[in-house]
Write a protein that binds this DNA or RNA. Structure first.
Length: 275
DNA sequence: AGTCTTGTTCGACT
DNA sequence: CAGTCGAACAAGAC
């Protein structure tokens, strides 16, 4: 499940692969519904022959800047992957869009469940414009979080998953951050004290930075799992304290970790630490 | 057969 | 009217 650290890993790997300066020689779209906001024909027309200037991340979006002011916005959703093949290859069942670069390499968008979307636009798309602050940038401060939490009145977990509140968090890192901050996922944001908000601020940054340092979280062995550009697994799964560890002892106090459902999402807590 | 996954959209409710 | 929240949806693996 690509969240901020996984998307950041992909963006870094793409930049490291030397993709900037490459020209997109051809685009093959095998599953047209992957392309959002324009027809596959218009997409191909706008992208073909253009040079890639820059790859960056905003929230869970990968943004590829082209030389003609157009940008390609890629959202991996649950099972989307970008992979770089050194030369032409036989596209597999879940390879939906193939970008052939002038070096002969092929950048492939692969997505088992077909939820991922690719948009091309010179304007910032509405849902990207609506994203909340980046938790690893300076704009995300303790003072902002304190004020923002007291300005809302919702369960803290669904609020943190709301991309217009804060960008980039998903189910894994929210559970991990709330455990570290010792806050129950159903606590109303308005009741969270300033001291708790400070702890949550630190926890969010800690779990995200750790995730990036470990090149993301790859949970199982299935092909629908997260793998970065070169096919590498993330090493962060071992660092998870509660996510999908129900039945195991809490690393802090030894109490058995519980699974519950909050806002229709599977949620993992230590009932002692987060009571 | 049912569950699980993300984020958006829509409708209901306060 | 604004904020909140649940249901539905897309698609396939397990």
């Amino acid at each position: 499940m690509p969240e901020l650290p996984e998307v950041e890993t992909v963006v870094r790997d793409l930049n490291q692969s030397g993709i900037c300066g490459c020209r997109i020689k051809a685009v093959t779209i095998k599953w047209p519904r992957t392309i959002d906001g324009s027809t596959p024909e218009a997409f191909t027309e706008a992208v073909r022959g253009k040079t890639i200037k820059l790859v960056q991340r905003r929230g869970k979006y990968i943004i590829i800047h082209l030389c003609n002011e157009n940008r390609i916005y890629i959202h991996l959703r649950m099972t989307g992957k970008l992979q770089m093949h050194p030369k032409e290859f036989q596209a597999g069942k879940h390879d939906h869009v193939v970008f052939t670069l002038n070096s002969g390499r092929q950048l492939v968008f692969n997505d088992t469940r077909k939820f991922g979307r690719i948009t091309m636009s010179a304007e910032v798309p509405p849902n990207v414009a609506a994203l909340g602050p980046e938790p690893l940038e300076r704009e995300f401060t303790k003072a902002w979080l304190q004020a923002a939490l007291s300005g809302k009145s919702r369960a803290i977990k669904p609020l943190l998953l709301d991309q217009s509140f804060i960008a980039g968090l998903g189910n894994i890192y929210v559970d991990e951050a709330l455990w570290q901050a010792r806050i129950h996922p159903e606590r109303n944001s308005r009741t969270i004290t300033h001291a708790e908000a400070d702890g949550l601020h630190r926890a969010i940054r800690t779990v995200l930075k750790r995730g990036i340092k470990n090149s993301g979280t790859t949970l199982g062995n299935g092909e629908s799992n997260f793998y970065s550009v070169a096919g590498h697994r993330g090493r962060n799964a071992d660092q998870l304290k509660v996510f999908r560890r129900d039945g195991e002892p809490c690393p802090a106090c030894g109490t058995t970790i519980q699974r519950l459902v909050v806002g229709q999402r599977g949620t993992h807590i230590c009932p002692q630490c987060q009571g």
